[in-house]
């Protein structure tokens, strides 16, 4: 493993090993372990996948195959705030495209990218089930509904401040 990574994440790695210990030998352990590992590290770099592969005795290609199959797993570090634009049908019909366009141009990045200051990452998500309030976005766990393009500026500002 990359030494820099090991020293930087000493504590998390310890917790990861504990986690693997709890799940080892259990049926269907891989996905919950990956989910919790991602909560720990914020993403699933190659080092973490390697440890999980060894710890759970699951071949690395299988671990990587699962990580890349499910869209909630990420191998790149995300920004401090996750701006997720719902691209479900209801939101689409109600102008999610324009909302996304506005966010992209305000932040100067595309979907899947992170701003240079590490503050924001934009994601396009599947329907989050708040269709009644379409179009919606979520920032971290906060949901913003019935959006219009003109609201975006103010919403993003709020996250810049704190």
């Amino acid at each position: 493993m990359d030494n820099a990574f090991a020293t930087q994440h000493k504590e998390e790695l310890g917790r990861l090993r504990e986690l693997i210990g709890q799940y080892r030998g259990r049926h269907g352990a891989l996905i919950p372990v990956l989910q919790k590992a991602q909560d720990l590290f914020g993403y699933l770099p190659i080092e973490v996948q390697g440890i999980i592969s060894e710890g759970l005795r699951i071949p690395l290609p299988e671990v990587y195959g699962v990580v890349t199959f499910y869209s909630q797993f990420t191998m790149v570090k995300k920004g401090k705030h996750q701006v997720a634009v719902c691209l479900g049908t209801a939101c689409y019909i109600r102008g999610a495209k324009d909302i996304l366009g506005e966010i992209q141009s305000r932040l100067g990045i595309e979907v899947g990218q992170t701003t240079d200051d590490g503050l924001f990452t934009i994601d396009g998500t599947r329907c989050i089930g708040a269709c009644g309030l379409a179009p919606v976005i979520t920032i971290d766990k906060e949901v913003y509904g019935r959006l219009e393009v003109r609201h975006i500026k103010g919403i993003l500002e709020k996250y810049r401040e704190d």
């Binding site: 190659i46 071949p59 690395l60 290609p61 990587y64 195959g65 890349t68």
Partner: peptide, 27 residues
């Protein structure tokens, strides 16, 4: 040896070693 696997999904799916590595970097 379990050196190969499926990665990604949909039409991005590809078959090979994890992380798109070369085959010599595997088991």
């Amino acid at each position: 040896a379990s050196a190969l696997g499926f990665s990604e999904r949909g039409d991005r799916t590809f078959v090979g070693p994890a992380f798109g590595h070369n085959i010599t970097d595997t088991t």
